[in-house]
Every structure is written in structure tokens, then in C-alpha cells.
């Protein structure tokens, strides 16, 4: 197990390096540069800026310098937010993005998994049909469309909730719900399908033949098996929530990492783009690693490769 984690961590560093390299190349392929403004700057000024930020050096040297910095925990200085380090910008954005993502993830799990289980255990009942219908709707309606519709109802018509902003509990409700809708629906669909599959398994019949109470059969024999596929998608779902929240952050004007990243792209803020991608790639990699460990913990067949 330890060897597995060490190997995966080493591999992770390689992946992060390649991700940064690809991002760096793509970024410099984008037409224009960080100093493009409405009013063109004087060539002298641009030259001075390039020199100050090291952009006059050859691309490979810039990349090496950047990686060297990253290894020392220095993500560089933003080009668009004058004199702020990327680390401090991210430090402001990450808590918001993470709060949104984690709250939405918990909400999605709490709503999605039980409703999928309930639907499967009462297959073809009213509970099943309504759960499937809601899951299908929330799995297809885009989060920002949902957000807009909610905003129209709760802010424009009913005046119950503020449209945008960050800080209060009321301001959290709609963004969290919009973010959670899709993963909740997916959890419900996957849980339902896998539970239906497990219910038909021979070992569930064996458990019944031992005369165990139905509650024990469900918890010990059905759920433990039917949750395995849920765990495999939980990691990517959380990663999606954190990386995909930029639209919701945009809609509800929440200053999270996603909004910063998009602004970074508009402004050709190279270091900000790199910093954002690095953050997201680390989140994805760590979550995938967690899934693998959790997977091995719940399914003994995985442990002995």
C-alpha cells in the first residue's frame, strides 16, 4: 500500500510537470500579450515591463525559471493585479471555491445516494419514478440555467434571497444548490443502477437464506457493494465541482479561483493562468489518489494486485 502511494505521488509530479508544460506552450500560442490594453502602451514601456517580469528571455528559460520558482513555492507575480503574488491571489480565491465545492459535494451525497437507494429498493414505485425523473432533469439542465431560473424565482419574484455576492448564508444557498444539482442527480442515477444490480446478486440471496434481518442485509450486504461504483465517481465529481464552478462563480459574482482564472485568460495574465491550472491539476490528482485508496479499502479484491 505504501509503495503504491509513493509510486503514485512520484507519477503525480511528472503529470503536473507535463500539465504545466502544455499550459505554458498553449498560453504563449494565444495571440497577444499581457500588456495589450485599450490604448497601446509605448514600446519603451512594454520593453521595460518585459524586462522586469523576465519576458524578454527565451521561452525555455522562462519556463525553467517558472518551474524553479514553483519548486520553491513561488508562483510568480500577477501581471494584471499589479504587484500581487499569485500565491496571495489564490489564497483569497481557494477558500471560496473550496467552500462552494465541498458544501455542494456533501449536499449532493446526502441527497443523491439515499434517493438512488430508495428508488432501487422500491423499484417501479412512485418513489422510484419521481426520483428517476428528478435525477434526469437535474442531470440535464445546465447549472447556470438552473441558477438563472432560481434567481428569477427567489430573487426577482419572491425577493427572498440576494442575487449575488459572498459572505452570508443566504448568499450561499443558490450557488451551492446549482452546483450540487448535477452531481446529486448523477449519484442518484449511479446508486440506483448499482443497487438494482447488487440486489439481484446471489450473495444477497445467501444473506437472506441465513435469516438475517432485512436492515442488516441492506447495510452489510447491499450497500457495501453498491457504493463501490459511487466511490469511483465521487472523486471526479468533486474535482468537477471545484474546477467547473467558475460559471456559477461568474453568475453569482463570487470571487473564487474559477472567476480569477477566466479573468486571467482575458488579461493574458500568464502566471495567473499557470497558477490556476496548477491548483486544479493538484486537486484532481489528489482526489484521484484518494479514490484509489478508498476503493482498495472497501473492495478487498483490489488490494492484491
Amino acid at each position: 500500500m505504501l509503495r503504491f502511494i509513493v509510486r503514485r505521488t512520484l507519477w503525480l509530479f511528472l503529470v503536473l510537470f507535463v500539465v504545466l508544460l502544455i499550459t505554458f506552450v498553449l498560453m504563449h500560442l494565444v495571440p497577444g500579450g499581457p500588456w495589450d490594453r485599450e490604448k497601446a502602451l509605448a514600446p519603451k514601456v512594454v520593453e521595460a515591463l518585459n524586462k522586469r517580469y523576465g519576458l524578454d528571455k527565451p521561452l525555455w528559460e522562462q519556463f525553467v525559471n517558472y518551474i524553479w520558482g514553483v519548486l520553491h513555492g513561488d508562483l510568480g507575480v500577477s501581471y494584471s493585479y499589479s504587484d500581487r503574488t499569485i500565491t496571495s491571489i489564490l489564497a483569497h480565491g481557494i477558500p471560496k471555491t473550496a467552500t462552494l465545492g465541498i458544501l455542494a459535494f456533501i449536499f449532493a451525497l446526502i441527497v443523491g445516494v439515499p434517493s438512488g437507494v430508495a428508488a432501487a429498493l422500491k423499484q417501479n414505485s412512485a418513489i422510484d419514478y419521481s426520483s428517476v425523473l428528478f435525477a434526469t432533469i437535474f442531470a440535464s439542465v445546465p447549472g447556470f440555467v438552473l441558477g438563472i431560473l432560481l434567481m428569477m424565482i427567489f430573487s426577482v419574484v419572491l425577493h427572498w434571497l440576494p442575487t449575488t455576492g459572498w459572505g452570508t448564508f443566504q448568499q450561499l444557498l443558490m450557488p451551492v444548490f446549482c452546483l450540487a444539482a448535477l452531481p446529486a442527480a448523477q449519484f442518484a442515477r449511479i446508486t440506483r443502477a448499482s443497487t438494482l444490480e447488487v440486489i439481484r446478486q446471489d450473495y444477497v440471496r445467501t444473506a437472506r437464506s441465513k435469516g438475517l434481518p432485512e436492515s442488516t442485509i441492506r447495510v452489510r450486504h447491499i450497500f457495501r457493494n453498491s457504493l463501490i461504483p459511487v466511490i469511483t465517481v465521487a472523486g471526479p465529481e468533486l474535482a468537477n465541482l471545484i474546477t467547473g464552478s467558475f460559471i456559477i462563480e461568474n453568475l453569482f459574482a463570487i470571487p473564487g479561483v474559477g472567476r480569477l482564472f477566466v479573468q486571467g485568460i482575458f488579461a493574458r495574465d500568464y502566471t495567473l493562468i499557470m497558477g490556476g491550472i496548477l491548483f486544479y491539476a493538484i486537486v484532481i490528482a489528489i482526489l484521484n489518489l484518494l479514490v484509489d485508496i478508498l476503493y482498495a479499502a472497501i473492495d478487498p479484491r483490489i488490494r492484491y494486485e
Partner: peptide, 21 residues
Amino acid sequence: VDVMYAFPDILLIILLRSVLG
């Protein structure tokens, strides 16, 4: 493919879109 998975999908699309126009 692993490296591709390490990218946040939609942000990579945004980056590519900026490159491609």
C-alpha cells in the same frame, strides 16, 4: 490519457479556444 485527465476539462477548452480563436 492520464495527463489529459489531469487537466480540468472546461478550463483546457477555454485555453484552447483562446489559442484557436
